[in-house]
Design a protein around this nucleic acid. Structure first.
Lengths: 260, 260
DNA sequence: GAGTGGTCTAGACCACTAG
DNA sequence: TAGTGGTCTAGACCACTCC
C-alpha cells in the first residue's frame, strides 16, 4: 500500500522519512562515527517496510555523505571529514623560501597527515584544453607530472601539472619525484620564471565512475575540478595544473582585492 | 534472472548499461536538446527489462545532468547549460560606476537573460556563523536581503546579504528592492564604506531536498555554497553574502596575485 | 555457511499532465 | 480519461565478507 506519511495525502514518501530519521540519528550522535548502521534486513523489521524501500532510503543517506557502505559488510558512519582549507595564501613565496611546497604549507596549518604518491612523470602530448592555456599547439610535447594526494590515508585529490618542454628541459629537478624544497614553483623561480599571478577556475560536478573509483567515492558524489594557470611576470603560462578533488574534503578560500 | 552483461560474470549491471546507452544517444546527438526521452514503459519494451530496472537507469541518466524529468510529462533533453562564468572581475569599481551591479556585470558578458526576484528584505536576528563574520554577537539585529536569481527562466542561485544595522540605518536605499545603479555595494561606498577586499569561501556538496526544490534540481545534485565577506579599508566586514548555486550552472574564476 | 548489500522481476496503486 | 512518472511490495537470485 503506497500511502504516504501517516495515512496523509500526497505527502513525504516513506523512504525519505526513513532516510531523514537515520540522518538525524547520526547528526544527533545516536549513531557515532565508526558505528555500524543497522543492516538493511534489520531496518526492514524496525520500520515495517519492504526491502526496496529501505534500499532507497539508504541511497539518500549515502548521498548525504555521512555514511560509507561496503558490499558484504554493511554501512559505517564516517568520521566527519576534517575539511582541508584551501586558501589562496598557500602560494606565498615565503612558504617556498622556507622550503615548503603549497600542499605542505596548508597541511601544516591543519595538522593532518598528508602523503603524495607520484603516478607519472614524463613527456606527453598536450591535451586540447591544456595546450590552449599553455599557448602551444595541441599535441606538442610537454612535461606531465601526475600525482595522487592522500589525507590521513584516504585519497582526496589527483593533480596533473603540465609544463612546456622548453621551460623544463634545463631544470632536471622537475623530472624527479622530489623536486626539492619549495616544490616545482621554487625551482621555476630559481630559473628566472618569476610568478606574477595564478588564475584558478573551479567547477563542481558529480563524479564519473572512474573518478569515483580513484578517489574512493560513491559515483555521483560531488567533485571539484580545478584548473590553475601559473603566470610569470612576462605574462607567460609556464604551468597548468589540472586537479580533481573530493568535494567533501575541501573548503576553498579566495581573497579578491577591490580594484577600479 | 539477475545475470549481467551478455551472460558474463560479475559485470556491469543492466541498468548502468542502459543508462550509458541513453547518455551516449544524447551525446551523439541521436537525442537532441528539447527532444523527449522515450517513456519508461516504451523503454521497458525496447530493452526487454522490468520497470524497476529502467527506473534505476533513468536515475543515473538524470544524475548526468543531461536530462530533466517532470512528473506526469516525461523526460526532456536539457539544453547544454550555457555556464555562467563567475569571475572575480565582477566586483570592479568601474562596473559600479557605470551603474551595473555585480550580477549584471557578468551577465552582460554572457548574453544570458538574468532576472532577480526579491524574496525578503528586512530586519533579522543574525544567524550564528554570519554574526561571527560580521563581528557582532549572535542574535543581534541585522538587515537581511534575500533574493533568487534566474537565468533564462530557471532558478540558479539564492543569495542572502546580511548587513550590520548601524551601517544600514542611514542608507534608505538598502531597504528597497532596487537599491539603485551599481547595487548595494555602490550605495555602501557612497556612504564612506570603501572596500579593500572581498573574501570568498566555497564548498561544494550534494543538495538537501529543500535546496533542490528551490533551485529545481534533483536532490543530491551538487550545489556550491559560497560565503563572501566584504571588507572595508578600515578592516570592517560590512556585508556577508550567503549564496547557494546550482553547481552545473557556474564556473568560478579567481586571480591570485603572487605575493611574498 | 550465515549474513550482508546489490540486482532484477512483476505487479499494484498513486499523483501529475494533458487533451 | 489515457499516459506518464513515483512509490511500494514480496520474493528470487547473486556477489562480497568474515568466521
Amino acid at each position: 500500500m503506497g500511502t504516504a506519511v501517516g495515512g496523509g495525502r500526497g505527502a513525504v514518501p516513506r523512504y525519505v522519512q526513513i532516510a531523514d530519521d537515520l540522518v538525524q540519528q547520526i547528526r544527533a550522535g545516536v549513531l557515532k562515527a565508526g558505528d555500524m548502521v543497522p543492516s538493511e534486513s534489520e531496518l526492514v523489521e524496525r520500520y515495517g517496510v519492504a526491502g526496496g524501500t529501505i534500499r532507497k532510503a539508504m541511497v539518500e543517506v549515502r548521498a548525504s555523505g555521512l555514511v560509507e557502505t561496503r558490499h558484504g559488510k554493511g554501512s559505517i558512519v564516517k568520521a566527519r571529514p576534517a575539511v582541508r582549507h584551501r586558501s589562496s595564501d598557500r602560494f606565498r613565496r615565503t612558504h617556498r623560501q622556507e622550503g615548503r611546497a603549497a600542499y605542505l604549507a596548508e597541511s601544516a596549518q591543519s595538522g593532518a597527515e598528508v602523503k603524495v604518491s607520484v603516478l607519472f612523470i614524463g613527456p606527453m602530448e598536450a591535451p586540447e584544453g591544456i595546450a590552449e592555456r599553455l599557448g602551444v599547439t595541441a599535441g606538442t610535447q610537454v612535461l606531465a607530472r601526475r600525482r595522487l594526494y592522500f589525507r590521513d590515508g584516504t585519497p582526496v585529490e589527483t593533480a596533473t601539472s603540465y609544463l612546456p618542454w622548453d621551460v623544463v628541459k634545463d631544470i632536471p629537478e622537475l623530472f624527479s619525484e622530489n623536486p626539492g624544497p619549495g616544490g616545482i614553483y621554487a625551482r621555476l623561480e630559481d630559473h628566472g620564471h618569476v610568478f606574477a599571478e595564478y588564475v584558478e577556475t573551479l567547477q563542481a560536478r558529480p563524479a564519473a565512475k572512474a573518478e569515483a573509483t580513484e578517489l574512493s567515492l560513491t559515483p555521483g558524489a560531488p567533485v571539484v575540478h580545478l584548473l590553475r594557470d601559473a603566470v610569470t611576470e612576462e605574462g607567460r603560462v609556464v604551468e597548468v595544473c589540472d586537479t580533481l578533488m573530493a568535494a567533501d574534503q575541501f573548503v576553498f578560500e579566495y581573497r579578491i582585492p577591490a580594484r577600479d
